[in-house]
Amino acid sequence: MRVRALTIRILRQFFRDKRTMAMMIVAPILILTMLNLVFNGKDYHPKIGLVKVPELIINQLDFKDAKITKYENSKLANEDLKDRKLDGYLLFDKQVPGITLEGSDPSKNKAVMTAVQKAFKPLMQKGNQGDFKVHYLHGSDSMTQFDYFGPVLLGYFAFFFVFLIAGVSFLRERTSGTLERLLSSPLRRWEIVAGYVLGFGVFTMIQAAIITWYSIYVLDMMMKGSFLLVLLINLLLSLSALTLGILLSAFANNEMQMIQFIPLVIVPQIFFSGLFDLDTISDWLSWIGPLTPLYYGANALREVMVRGYGWSHIYIDLLVLLALSVLFMVLNVAALKKYRNI
């Protein structure tokens, strides 16, 4: 009897909390849909440049699944490679064809190599196929998938935990009545937000330093650029997670509802921030990426860690992260108005 009473009570609570109920059904559907879209995306068509390849050979080559651009000299092709307009280019030098790859994404390297080998198949029926000299702009043939994913995961987990912890602790401030106590003092609303940003800022700085250090020196994650820049990126990314977490906690009534934000806010970011190739995601979903902080953080981390670039390549990403954080902070100050008018 007591078990039955308990069961009925829990069911009743469930039906009262419409959002939790909807979340139980909607969230799995949402995630499954995303996974479906991500994994059943289009095949990747590598972008290949042909430099000084004689017309005679071009006519015999059969690039079915690649986008081909012709170049007069390797300098132009190299520039497009750096801008990631090309995944690799083919250069005919003294009859020995050489391939230069952008190199930072192992799966794209593979796509280029496969396309090139397929294209050369009719030409090389007798000889061994695929005897190319391969050069890498970034990375190397020993680069693993993890080296490419690593920077994104690094940013992702920093983001995830800061978001959750900051959100829940601000929520507890509200539910325990201490927020009301704070607001009954002459403390200004922006001071509360600033206090949280600074308090967590210190904490996230330590967190970022430890995670970054561990990833690079213990997990041996690829690291071509400056450690300090990686720290800076992680710090700004955490700042956006912190401010977003606090902001969203205003729309949760308890810890459970805070956790429900994970499938809505955290999980989608992993799909649309570069862990999976953004080029193969359906066009009608690709607009999600640029709305998420992780999109910028992951890009900057990859620029520094995999490609070894410096400030000039990442400052726009950092500015966007900062702008998002400021936006969230302003919204936070406004949201606190709900609890005190001035």
Binding site: S176, G177, T178, E180, R181, S184, S185, P186
Partner: peptide
Amino acid sequence: MERVGYMSQADAL
């Protein structure tokens, strides 16, 4: 507000 002391029903600690 600076000149008022307030103790709420919940122990805000």
